[in-house]
Nucleic acid binder design. Structure first.
Lengths: 332, 332
DNA sequence: GATTCAATTGAAATCGATTACATCACGGCT
DNA sequence: AGCCGTGATGTAATCGATTTCAATTGAATC
């Protein structure tokens, strides 16, 4: 088969221990080191990571468990996590759960079998409720969505604040019947709904958030139906990039003009939000930073398990664009 | 530490061999099987995959080496590969090379250390020229970009044909000075340029493709400069989603109206291409299928290494949208 | 010159599983 | 009754590295 440490050792005329020390920067005389390095090159030796991990008892691997890598939010996070991980000499195992609690459980089991050093996890709401971090023998960092209260490190957006900013922006621009769509699979949705209701209550206005599956299709359907009701909203807020897309499609299909007949704003500053029509107002999340910080926190905890549990809350950034320029006067 | 097979064995009152057989569906009596399964559950035993891989000499892992997972093309491919892999009981290690040949070499080395079963690879042009598949002891499947001629299985788009379709479409719609931007890091760019030149030559028209880095920024800059030249094109073709985005930005910044003053078409049917203006005409690649077929080919080769080398060429699909409706008559 | 100490080196144990091989019990057959 | 084949089980070797521990060397100290 392939060349092993034994082959290198005999080629260099040294013991396997010495070869191992050369590889691991242990104490070796310059002469032997040179001989070994030459042998490694000559034979094209590559250490077997399974064997190394088995013996040394650390995997140098972290798991990243998210709902769907095709969601640009997670794509960005994943890229940041991988950059940071590989820089720290670790690998990343990526898992897509499709918001399916069974897949989540399955992948967490897999992470245990891989003996990963730690996991960065974005759990579904269902999972996060009844699951116990203590059941795993690796640390976890939650991202985007909060897990069971205070059990693990977390990197989150200030969802309440972000919603409030969006709502107040819409109100400032003259919209008054503000509807909203939130995802029904994560804690993120509830938190954003909280901010949304709070901001409206403050002004004595009625709220009416609706919870649907966090997909473009579900959002499109929901908005299409909403438009048919007696008093539809005059502005809509969508809780992630996919739902914003669905809302946009429904409004276009129904011929509702933006921003005149309907204001539209949402989360996630995806490429296209700046390009469609006169641009869509959104809350931009610090995607890359979320991944980066999550990885840093995980590494810190691996260094020192006794660290107090931390929760980093980042602010989003409101990007005002044409889709919320205000309702047409003629409407009144 | 964590519970090992030995613990399970003594808890169930059997030998480790029997436990291993229960796990691997070997021949075990119903009674012992039940005892072992109970012990596994009671102790929460999870087999150590490093140990298993070391002993059994197969990793059940494939590598996926692409330039950047944030490119929606690769995101889609990756999702398909992972779905297919996990269905076949394999894991995927994802690597981003950033079109950097050194990173490519580094990650291929890593793949050897992981003793992966195989690799799905989208090489830079530079790497694909001087690299030898025989140097690796795992099979590879090339995707999107062709590797060294005929050395490995590949799943590709018919780039020549796709370019021809785009050019003929533009000509049909009345454009005549067709410019094009191709990425300078992959074989894909050259192939698309080939089709582009061929289609124009057939009609006796001049061609003038330009090669730039496959990023939005590079494309934007290139188009901005192009517009300042003596006789700018009246239609542009962009070789991937990012470059199409860059071209669009440059045209908008310069106030060039689409499709009247400039036709615009490109590759990759990304979400936003259907949403901006009256839509952008694009060639849609069968992204998910590319990943799926690549994985199938890899699995087939792992089954039988003697299989003849295959190259699957898929057709793209032309999606006609508003951005190529034709130049304004008033221009003449 | 003897003793101590640090720095190299190698032999062998070890990580946690799979698997080759030996053993055993049992039933069917001549 | 004796023989043999079959299926279940256990013992021990093995995968390829790291790491412990002991041995060796040579320089430094008294």
């Amino acid at each position: 088969m392939s060349v092993k440490i034994k082959d290198v050792a005999s080629a260099a005329g040294v013991s396997v221990a010495t070869v191992s020390r050369v590889l691991g920067n242990g104490p070796v005389s310059a002469e032997l080191r040179a001989r070994v390095e030459r042998a490694v090159l000559d034979l094209g030796y590559r250490p077997n990571l399974s064997a190394r991990r088995l013996r040394s008892q650390h995997s140098q691997t972290v798991g990243l468990v998210v709902s769907d890598i095709r969601n640009p939010f997670f794509t960005g996070v994943s890229r940041a996590v991988e950059d940071a991980a590989y820089q720290a000499g670790m690998r990343v195992i990526l898992c897509n759960t499709d918001e399916n609690p069974e897949k989540e459980a399955m992948y967490l089991r897999l992470m245990q079998e891989e003996r990963v050093s730690g996991v960065i996890f974005s759990p579904t709401r269902e999972t996060s409720q009844h699951f116990n971090v203590a059941g795993f023998d690796f640390p976890m960092v939650m991202i985007d969505r909060t897990g069971p209260a205070g059990q693990a490190d977390a990197v989150l957006l200030d969802n309440r604040l972000a919603s409030i900013q969006l709502v107040e922006h819409l109100l400032d621009r003259g919209y008054s019947r503000i509807g909203a769509l939130f995802g029904n699979t994560s804690t993120t949705g509830s938190e954003r709904n909280g901010g949304y209701e709070e901001a409206l209550k403050l002004r004595g206005l009625p709220s009416g958030g609706r919870f649907v599956a966090p997909t473009a299709e579900a959002a499109e359907l929901a908005v299409a139906q909403w438009l048919k009701e007696a008093t539809p909203p005059d502005a809509l807020l969508a809780s992630n990039g996919l739902m914003l897309l669905g809302a946009l499609r429904a409004l276009r299909a129904a011929g509702v003009s933006i921003p005149a007949r309907m204001g539209l704003a949402g989360f996630d500053n995806e490429i296209w939000t700046g390009l469609v029509g006169e641009g869509l107002t959104v809350i931009e999340q610090p995607v890359y930073q979320i991944g980066q910080i999550a990885m840093e926190m995980l590494l810190a905890r691996l260094e020192d398990a006794s660290l107090p549990i931390r929760r980093v809350v980042l602010n989003g950034r409101l990007i005002e664009r044409g889709s919320t320029r205000g309702p047409s006067r003629s409407e009144h």
